[in-house]
Design a protein around this nucleic acid. Structure first.
Length: 855
RNA sequence: GCCUCUGUGGCGGAAUUGGUAGACGCGGCGGAUUCAAAAUCCGUUUCUGGCGACAGAGUGCCGGUUCGAGUCCGGCCAGAGGCACCA
């Protein structure tokens, strides 16, 4: 009698059994002598309170890798923890009056309960939250070591300032140039802030990123572009007439295109360039410009997209190659103070932004680069700059040179004249880590009037966050706490002030992988690191990964990490998002998928029956209500089905669309798979026989196992899923085969259960048990395929005539090209296309294709 | 605006190095089983023309390289991720 698989009964049973057997406990190097190690890590979650399908997908993928590695004999570290500091906890405090710490730890408890149901092969014994004082205390110690090493410093930098709430705003909190709560136009303000000297490693970070072979190409390119190494020249424009005070040496600019110097029509300074700021003191127009430019906000996106805006500063500077030629100095909002020298020269014909600016303010546009194959009289610049290479003209001594030659010649002349030098510049800026917020790691320093900045002595770490804080008004609760910041100077003992800035939460996530490897044992850290497989969202392609690479280097250089390369993640996989269709009610309200149903091809609201408009498929988000709660799915279908679905349809790196029909299909498949084992359960186990039917079954199984093994290693989980589907179909078909095939069916089922384990671990255990497997399938070794059974002795090849497929032939493997050609020519479907035509040539690609070219 | 990626049937996608486009799944259609249904199983399903054998077209659009292009090159269009204080 056929039985059905009941996930609600089986899943908790197996998880309890795994826990009891401590199956996923990390073994120390000594406990696993001779075994290779595998550190599998997924980006740890922010404890928002609920697990979402994106988490399920992320952790399901990591679990596939971890379980596969374990089956392959690796000693596996697969930990989990919480990226627990951040703004949402403070927002909750403001909105609901709950303490950020309480809110966070409650969320962690709730999410951990959800995690438990997924059947992930995690070792929870290494769990921590970044808001645990033990963690952030260690981070403070690390901060002080970096400070000793000269990797930490303070400087003035800009923040978004809400003038009504009197608080610093994150870029996310600036909406259309206004504060998200107050609605007041945002201003830029300068604060003295803490920075990490990441630029010290710029060259190494760039150099090494190219060598990370197991990283996606696109992430390596994004990182390289972010670091943005540019070679060019830095040189000076001297003032005509009296220079502004303190700027007798002129204006220093950086350019990558000194070849276009004869096309210069203006020099432009950043709004916060010292000269611009100095002139604003006496010139109201400049002051107004600075104020207007400051309203754009601090994000690069906003600055780049804003309409070009400038002001003539009333100064003129002399061209380095011709002192008689002078050009005006402007301040312009598209010049970034943080890149190069904060000043540029505008050569409008060769740069789109310069051209837009020149057109707006009526500045000259002189073309100096002739595109290849163009005559000077035909080359005209109207609305589009020519940024490509070409031949230089209208440029005196540079005339006739190529762009490349002219760059060299111009730099050489600048150097001869003593006006400038060849320079390398990076786009990468030092990492500003100060946050004027409560729910973060306190920066462990004390400001003393007499002694300056004094580190908190190690014996006094961690500097704990005070619990008694208020969120009834905006601003930093640490700043207005009555006592917390008032401390004695550790050096002189006089009353001093504790630093009230906390660290950027990116710092917390920049070294957690090392903490998982070991809290403090350098040898154990050295054993586990680097992470062999890191899995997470593509949205972290630049910042988080770059900061982590920086931190690994910094930790290495202060003796906290024995990792010569400084690369924390040897393998990286970036997974796509989970999306869902959106629904809107007749009244324009977003509706949850659980509130709607499809009837006769149209969508209606469950209950009321009112019409619903389906919208675009988007990333699951609370605001669009297009979320599906993993708990509800698990309650209905079980964790295995949820895991299977998020791994099945789409390639892991792409987005997957969650559909009800899809998850129901997954649930049906789970039952079908179960039936393969269920059918065998009453039969007598036997070794596989060698008749034709058995051989066919065995070949299908061994080929499938080999293919799944490869697919998992290559992160093609959807292909592995497709292979398991085909395999199950083959095994179902074999049920009608003779009795002699039973041995082959048992072999296939045993292999299938083991290949299934990384994907649907609970079901795999039940299947394994059903056919009398020994111990846990979660602890069973990977079924290695027998090479003799995965190879065929014939091969099917397509035959094309003039590139069009006309027939298919089957030939022995390794057949000589001439023989294959003869078979192809002789095929009737081919012959009819060759009749009356002359064969010009025949291309034979062994094992793949024959192409006959006819006149 | 800049950097990066993606685009293939009704839908999600497969095609591993330039070599049979549409594996596998969802949905649809037809059938079996059933008193009936659920569940399950089998078949079929890119489009157009044709009763059919078959022929033609076809991987966002335009062009190119090649015996051969979803895959490589150039130019467009559309969508997504990131842009340094969201995590």
């Amino acid at each position: 009698m056929a039985t059905r698989y009941d996930p609600q009964a089986a899943e908790p049973k197996w998880r309890e059994a795994w826990d009891k057997a401590q199956l996923f406990r990390t073994k120390s190097p000594k406990e696993a002598p001779g075994a290779p190690k595998a550190y599998v890590l997924e980006m740890f979650p922010y404890p928002s309170g609920r697990l979402h399908m994106g988490h399920v997908r992320n952790y399901a993928m990591g679990d596939v890798v971890a379980r596969h590695k374990r089956a392959k004999g690796y000693n596996v570290l697969h930990p989990m923890g919480w990226d627990a500091f951040g703004m949402p906890a403070e927002n909750a405090a403001m909105e609901r009056g709950v303490h950020p710490g309480e809110w966070t730890y409650q969320n962690i408890a709730a999410m951990k309960a959800q995690f438990a149901k997924l059947g992930l092969s995690l070792d929870w014994s290494r769990e921590f939250a970044t808001c645990d004082p033990e963690y952030y205390g260690a981070q403070q110690a690390l901060f002080l070591k970096l400070m000793d090493e000269g990797l930490v410093y303070r400087k003035a930098s800009k923040v978004n300032w809400d003038p009504v709430d009197n608080t610093v705003l994150a870029n996310e909190q600036v909406i259309d140039g206004k504060g998200w709560r107050s609605g007041a136009p945002v201003e830029q303000r300068e604060l003295t802030q803490w920075f990490f000297r990441i630029t010290q490693y710029a060259e190494d970070l760039l150099d090494q990123v190219q060598k990370l072979e197991r990283w996606p190409e696109k992430v390596r390119i994004m990182q390289a572009n972010w670091i943005g190494k540019s070679t060019g020249a830095t040189f000076r424009w001297l003032f005509e007439g009296p220079a502004p005070a303190g700027h007798q040496d002129g204006i220093e600019v950086f350019t990558t295109r000194p070849d276009t110097l004869f096309g210069a029509s203006f020099v432009a300074l950043a709004p916060d360039h010292p000269i611009t700021k100095a002139l604003a003191e006496t010139n109201p127009a400049v002051k107004a410009f600075i104020r207007e430019a400051a309203q754009i906000g601090t994000s690069e996106e906003a600055i780049e997209k804003a309409p070009k805006l400038g002001v003539d500063l009333g100064l003129r500077v002399k061209h380095p190659f011709d002192p008689e030629w002078t050009i005006p100095v402007w301040a312009a909002n598209f010049v970034l103070s943080s890149y190069g020298t904060g000043a540029i020269f505008g050569s409008p014909a060769g740069d789109q932004r310069d051209l837009d600016f020149a057109r707006k303010y009526g500045l000259p546009v002189q073309p100096v680069v002739l595109p290849p194959g163009t005559k000077p009289e035909d080359h005209e610049i109207t609305d589009e700059a020519y940024v490509g290479p070409g031949t230089i003209y209208n440029s005196k001594f540079l005339d006739g040179l190529s762009t490349e030659e002219a760059i060299k010649a111009a730099i050489a002349r600048l150097e001869t004249l003593g006006q400038g030098t060849a320079t390398t510049t990076y786009r990468l800026r030092d990492w500003g880590v100060s946050r004027q917020r409560y729910w973060g790691c306190p920066i462990p320093v004390i400001h003393c009037e007499g002694c300056g900045v004094v580190p908190v002595p190690e014996s006094q770490l961690p500097v704990r966050l005070p619990d008694d804080v208020t969120f009834d008004k905006p601003g930093n609760p640490l700043e207005r706490h009555p006592t917390w910041k008032h401390v004695d100077c550790p050096a002189c003992g006089k009353l001093a002030r504790r630093e009230t800035d906390t660290l950027d939460t990116f710092v917390d996530s920049s070294w957690y992988y090392a903490r998982f490897a070991s809290p403090d044992d350098m040898e154990e850290r050295a054993y586990w690191l680097p992470v062999d497989q890191y899995v997470g969202g593509i949205e972290h392609a630049v910042l988080h990964l770059l900061y982590s690479r920086f931190f690994a280097r910094a930790m290495r250089d202060v003796g906290e990490l024995d990792l010569p390369s400084g690369e924390p993640f040897a393998g990286l996989f970036t997974q796509g998002m989970v999306t869902h269709e959106t629904y809107k009610s007749a009244g324009g309200q977003w509706l949850q998928p659980s509130e709607v149903e499809q009837k006769d091809g149209t969508w209606i609201e469950i209950g009321s029956g009112k019409a619903v408009t389906p919208g675009p498929i988007e990333k699951m988000s609370k605001s669009k209500k297009n979320t599906v709660d993993p708990d509800a799915i698990i309650a209905q279908f079980g964790a295995d089905v949820a895991r299977w679905f998020v791994l099945s349809d789409s390639p892991p790196e792409r987005d997957v669309e969650w559909t009800q029909a899809g998850v129901e299909g997954s649930a049906r498949f789970a039952q079908r798979l179960w039936s393969v084992f269920d059918e065998l359960s009453g039969l007598e186990k036997a070794p596989p026989a060698s008749d034709a039917e058995s051989l066919a079954v065995r070949k299908a199984s061994h080929k499938a196992a080999a293919s799944i093994d490869k697919a998992i290693q290559e992160f093609r989980f959807n292909s592995a899923v497709a292979t398991i589907h085909e395999w199950v179909t083959a095994l179902k078909k074999s049920e009608s085969a003779g009795e002699s095939a039973i041995g082959a069916r048992f072999e296939g089922a045993s292999m299938l259960a083991r290949c299934l384990t990384p994907f649907m671990p609970h079901l795999a255990e039940s299947c394994w048990e059903r056919i009398g497997g020994e111990g846990f399938v979660s602890a069973a070794p990977w079924p290695e395929a027998d090479a003799a059974l995965t190879e065929d002795d014939t091969v099917t090849m397509a035959v094309q005539v003039n590139g069009k497929r006309r027939a298919e032939i089957t030939v022995p493997k390794g057949e000589a090209n001439e023989a294959v050609e003869a078979v192809a020519h002789a095929h009737p479907d081919v012959a009819s296309f060759l009749a009356g035509k002359s064969v010009k040539k025949t291309i034979v690609v062994p094992g793949r294709i024959v192409n006959i070219v006819v006149a």
